[in-house]
Computed example of a mutant assay.
Amino acid sequence: MNTPIANGTVRVIDGVERIHYDGYWLKVYAPPADSLQAKKTLIGALTRRLFNHVEHGINIPGKRIGEARAAFEAETDPAHRRVKGAMLAGALFNRATDIFTKLVELQEQGVEIDQDNALMRECGQCLQESLTLGKLVLHRSGEEGIDELWGEPFRAFSIPVEAFYDSRYVKIAQTMRDIDRIAAEMITTLACNPLFEGIEPLIRRFADIAKVKCETLRTDDAIFDVWADFVVTSEALSAFTPHLPADATIDQRQLAAAGQRLIVQGRDLVTYITRARVPMPKSTREYIERCKVFEAACKTGVAGDALEPLP
């Protein structure tokens, strides 16, 4: 009987130091020393990462927080209020980053900054409120929002840098799990269908490279090969063409088109979570439901509901 491997176990595998979490061996990166400067750099990187993944138009400068709050509080239309709440979240996020940057600059000039400093408290309050409002913000694709991206800067602010790095391994493992779930569902749904013969190795290759991309930091020398592999395998998957017979029926053509949409949607979803390095459970669940509908349609040979996207 194999003894379960404890989370946090570190081993050198094929010359690379790796840490085990939830069944995955992840590449280890040494965290910087815990300091305000390190936290400033980390929060700055997390800020850029956040705005790179969320909907456009919410990267509001921190100095406009009063205007953003007034616009949000005055709005009564639910749809407009959501967007203005997202804009306020962005302003709060940037205000926190602005404050933290100045605190680090003061520390570099020899000014002692303790955790109970009024500006430190305001920084934490801004991050906390932006985390709450962040639930209103959508992913740039229009899919569900990613709450994790809003919570990370607050965690980076609140806990030691090393502890933050450790928490990221958990999220990366969870993301890899969902990459595998999506890939497995795509294979189950499509690979046994003659229309999509040959799709399985493309899906497996894409999922494998996606997991490598997920664990690889942009500062890693390997990123040039990793990103190129990720893009090329993504393009190969989305370029797959169903094998329609010359005398294909209307239903076959419709199923082929629906299956192609599933391939692209699955590719896109894996790309979103790979780049963000956090799961998107609602989008993943809805995608799997679409796969089930398509699979049922294939069994009857009638396109039917497979042509209708789920709400």
Rank of each mutant, 00 (worst) to 15 (best):
T284A: 10
G23Q: 05
D247S: 15
G198D: 03
E112L: 14
G301A: 15
A45Y: 01
T3C: 02
K84Y: 11
I273T: 03
R261Y: 07
K211V: 05
R82H: 12
E215A: 13
N193R: 02
V161S: 12
M1R: 01
E148M: 07
M87V: 07
A91I: 02
E75A: 14
P242C: 11
L92C: 06
K213T: 10
G57W: 05
K282I: 14
A118Y: 03
R69S: 11
L237H: 05
I263G: 00
R121D: 11
I288F: 01
A258D: 07
G15M: 10
Y21N: 10
E144W: 02
T175F: 02
I179C: 06
M280D: 04
P309C: 07
F240D: 06
L149C: 02
E286V: 04
K84A: 05
Q107K: 14
F294L: 09
K282L: 14
L237E: 02
L244G: 09
L88R: 07
Y29C: 09
Q254D: 13
F157L: 08
A74K: 03
A163K: 15
A173E: 04
V83I: 14
G151A: 11
R140N: 13
Q109Y: 02
D116Y: 07
K63F: 05
F72H: 13
D98G: 09
D221T: 10
G23F: 07
Q107I: 00
L138N: 15
A89N: 00
Y165N: 09
D77A: 15
S35H: 11
R261H: 10
V83P: 06
E73L: 13
A236W: 07
V212L: 14
D268I: 03
V83G: 01
E148C: 01
T219D: 15
C123P: 03
E108K: 15
R177V: 01
R49Y: 11
F230D: 07
S167W: 02
V137P: 12
N52W: 00
V232S: 07
I179E: 06
I209Q: 08
V10S: 08
P201K: 04
D305M: 10
S141I: 08
K102H: 14
L202N: 03
N7W: 13
T76K: 14
A71S: 13
I187P: 10
R275A: 12
L244E: 04
S35R: 13
L217M: 08
A256T: 09
V137L: 08
F240N: 05
F196Y: 11
R69K: 14
D166C: 01
P281Y: 07
T241E: 13
I113S: 01
L255C: 02
V83K: 04
F240V: 05
K63D: 12
L244Q: 08
T188V: 11
Q37A: 12
M120Q: 06
A207R: 05
K39V: 01
E108N: 15
R267Q: 12
D220G: 09
A210C: 12
C126D: 14
G198Y: 00
R267H: 14
V104F: 11
G90N: 00
Q252S: 08
I99R: 04
G151I: 06
I288N: 03
Q125R: 05
E215M: 15
G8M: 08
M186V: 03
P309I: 09
A6W: 04
